[in-house]
Design a protein around this nucleic acid. Structure first.
Lengths: 349, 349
DNA sequence: CCTCAATGCTGCATCGATTGTGCAAACTGT
DNA sequence: ACAGTTTGCACAATCGATGCAGCATTGAGG
C-alpha cells in the first residue's frame, strides 16, 4: 500500500506531533539531550516518525552539514579478484564507520579516472580512496582543490598518503622460489626464467620487474633483453607472446613468472595445448592468487596480495586525522602449489 | 596549490561575472536557451566557472530537483566472479545514461539487505537494482513506499519486474551433458550423478535442483534421497560433504554437478588429494564459469551465466517507463572443458 | 513579591541550485 | 511618437535538515 506518493519529511512529522521542525530534527538525531528536549517528547516524535516510515533526506542533511556520509573509491575494474576483494573490504570498513561506500571503476583510463574523481567530488564524498591510480598527481590536484582527504592504494601518489603492496619483496621471493625449483638441463637459454605480462609504466609491474631482475642478478645470471616480456594484461596478448617465446626457444623455458591472473589465463591457453611432459621441465609462478589456478595440471607458485590489509591500512590513515605524507607497505603472501586457501569472504556465484 | 578552502558555488561565479545566480545556473546547465540568456553571457560565465574550477553541488541540485542522479544496486557480495561482472556491466550502462552507480553488498543477510535499501532510499537514488534478493517482498514494500522504481535481477520478486538467468535450462542441459559423458561401470549407486552445493531456499539453487531431478527422471533414473546435497556455498562445507559422500560410496560417483564456484573450490580441495586415475571414472560439471577451473587436471563442464545480458535487460525495463510486472529470462551458456573464453572485460589484478 | 536560573521548546536563517515570475531595455511596426 | 513584442536578465521562493538565538514557563532563593 503505497500510502503517500512522496516521502515524509520532518515537517510532516512536526505537523503530526504538534512539535516544531527543529524539535523533530533534534529528537530524531543525537542532539536532543543537549538541546534539552524532554524524553517524553522524543519518544512521541520517534513513534510517529516510525509509524510514518520517516527517514532523513541525506541530500538535505548533506547540504546543510557540508558532509555527505559517502566514501568514494576508484578501482581499475570490478571484474577482477584482487580489486573485488578490495571492494568487499572497503565496504565493510565503511559500514563500521557509518559511511556509505561508492565504488567506481576507471578501466585504467586516466580520462575516466579524472571524470570519476570529479563526479565523486560533486557528490561531496567525505573521503576518497584511489586504487591503482593512473594519474595520481592529477587526482591529488583535484582533491586538494576540493579540500578532500584522500589515500592512494596499490599505487602510490606524491600528493597524498599511500598504502601499497610490497611488490618488490613478493616478486623477489617468487623469483627466488622459481630459481630454486627450476629444472636444470644444461646452459642454454632455455634454462632461463622469463617474466611475462603487465605494463612497465604501471608502478606495481615496474617494481616486480625490478625485483625479478635483481633476484636473477643476485643469483649470478642477470636477465638478458627479451627475458622480460611486459605485454599488458590481456589474456590474448600473453597467449601470443608465450607462443612466440616457445617458438624462439624451441620449447618451454625453465621458468615463467606471470605478472597477473589475466595474463596467466592467456599463458594457460597456450600451455594447455602442450603435452604434460613438456610442462614437467618448467616451473611456473604467478603474481596474484586464484584458488583454481592453484590446482592446475602442473604446479603453480602463487602470490596472494593482502587486499584486506591494504584497505585496513588506508582507513587507518584516514582515521588518524593528520595529513602526513606516509607510504605504508603491506606484505603479500607466497602460496605453495596446490594449497587450499579459504578466502575471508567466500560465497557463491 | 589549494587555492580556496571551500569549493566555488554559483554565487561566487555570479559575483565574479556580474551576473545573478540564476543566470549562472542557467548558463552552466542546459536551460540557458529557453531562458533567453545571450550566448555571449553564457560564454563569459562558462569561462569564469572553468577558471575557478567550479563544479555543481549534487546535494543541492538533488534536493531541489528531487532526483539524485544515482542508481543503486544491491548484490550479495563483491568478491565473486558472477556478481563482480554484474557490477562492471551495471556501471557501464549507468554511465551511458549519465547516472552514477552505487553498489552495495548484502552478504545475503536479509537484515543487511533492508538496511542497504533503506540507506539508498535516503540518498534518493533514482532507480534501484536488487540482485540475488533474500527478501524481495520487503524490498518492494520499502521501494514502493519511497515511490522508487526497482528491478530484481537473478532472483525474481513479486513486487517489481525481474530479470533472471534460465537456471532450469542451464542446469538441465548440464545434467544431460553429464549423463551422456558419464562412464558406466555397472548398476551400483556409484553410477549415479550427485548435486552438491547451494541453498535450496535460494531461488536459483531451487530451480537448478528441480532441473537436475527432472533431467535424471527423464533419463529413467529419478534421484534418490541423498543425491542432492545442498550444503551451502562455503568451500569448507562442500569439501566435508564430498569427502563424506566418497566415504559412503567407497569412491567417487559417476558424476558430480557442483552448484557454485565456491562449493567447487571445496570439492577441488578433496579431489586434488585423490589419484588422477580415480578422476577418470567420474565426470564433473560446475554451474558458473571460471577460466582456471576450465583447465584443471580433469575435464570440467561449466555454465557461464550472462551477467552482462541480465543487466542489459534490467536497464531496458527501467528505460521503458512502464511498471508492468514482467519476468524476463536470459539464457546461460554451456562451456565445454578446456575452452579458452575471453571475457568482455579482461584486465589484471 | 521579585530576581535569577533552569527547562523545554520555537523561529529563522542557512546550505547551493533550480525555476516561476517579473520587469526594464531594445526593437518592431504603424 | 506610441503600443506591442521580444530580448536579457534579476528576484525570490523552494527543496529538507540543521543549529543559533531567543522566548515563555516553572521553580528556587532571598
Amino acid at each position: 500500500m503505497p500510502r503517500a506518493s512522496r516521502k515524509a519529511t520532518i515537517y510532516d512529522i512536526a505537523r503530526l506531533s504538534g512539535a516544531s521542525a527543529s524539535t523533530v530534527s533534534a529528537a530524531l538525531g543525537e542532539s536532543w539531550r543537549e538541546r534539552r528536549i524532554s524524553e517524553a517528547t522524543v519518544e512521541a516524535i520517534r513513534s510517529i516518525a516510525a509509524a510514518e516510515g520517516y527517514s532523513a533526506n541525506m541530500q538535505a542533511r548533506g547540504l546543510r552539514k557540508a558532509r555527505s556520509g559517502l566514501v568514494g573509491m576508484v578501482i581499475p575494474l570490478h571484474d577482477n579478484r584482487f580489486f573485488s576483494s578490495m571492494s568487499q573490504s572497503f565496504e565493510s570498513f565503511a559500514r563500521e564507520r557509518g559511511l556509505v561506500p561508492v565504488i567506481a571503476s576507471s578501466m585504467r583510463e586516466p580520462g575516466e579516472e579524472r571524470r570519476i574523481v570529479e563526479t565523486l567530488i560533486t557528490y561531496a564524498v567525505d573521503y576518497m580512496f584511489i586504487a591503482g591510480a593512473t594519474d595520481p598527481d592529477a587526482v591529488s590536484a583535484m582533491c586538494n582543490a576540493a579540500n578532500l582527504r584522500h589515500v592512494f592504494v596499490d599505487l602510490p601518489g606524491r600528493g597524498a598518503p599511500s598504502v601499497v603492496s610490497d611488490n618488490y619483496k613478493g616478486a623477489a621471493d617468487l623469483t627466488r622460489r622459481l630459481l630454486t625449483d627450476r629444472p636444470i638441463s644444461g646452459g642454454t637459454c632455455r634454462d632461463r626464467l622469463y617474466f611475462i605480462g603487465g605494463d612497465p609504466g604501471d608502478y606495481a609491474s615496474a617494481r616486480r620487474i625490478e625485483a625479478f631482475r635483481d633476484a636473477l642478478t643476485e643469483a649470478g645470471s642477470p636477465p638478458g633483453p627479451g627475458q622480460v616480456i611486459a605485454c599488458g594484461y590481456a589474456p590474448r596478448s600473453a597467449m601470443r607472446e608465450i607462443a612466440a617465446l616457445c617458438d624462439r626457444l624451441g620449447g618451454l623455458p625453465a621458468g615463467i613468472l606471470v605478472n597477473s591472473l589475466t595474463a596467466f589465463e592467456g599463458v594457460l591457453g597456450h600451455l594447455s595445448g602442450l603435452p604434460l611432459e613438456d610442462l614437467r621441465s618448467s616451473v611456473i609462478g604467478c603474481y596474484d592468487y586464484d584458488p583454481f589456478a592453484a590446482y592446475l595440471q602442473f604446479p603453480v607458485h602463487m602470490v596472494r596480495q593482502d587486499a584486506h590489509g591494504l584497505i585496513r591500512e588506508a582507513y587507518r590513515i584516514i582515521d588518524q586525522n593528520t595529513n602526513d605524507l606516509v607510504l605504508r607497505t603491506v606484505e603479500p603472501q607466497q602460496i605453495a602449489p596446490r594449497t587450499f586457501y579459504d578466502r575471508p569472504f567466500s560465497d557463491h556465484g
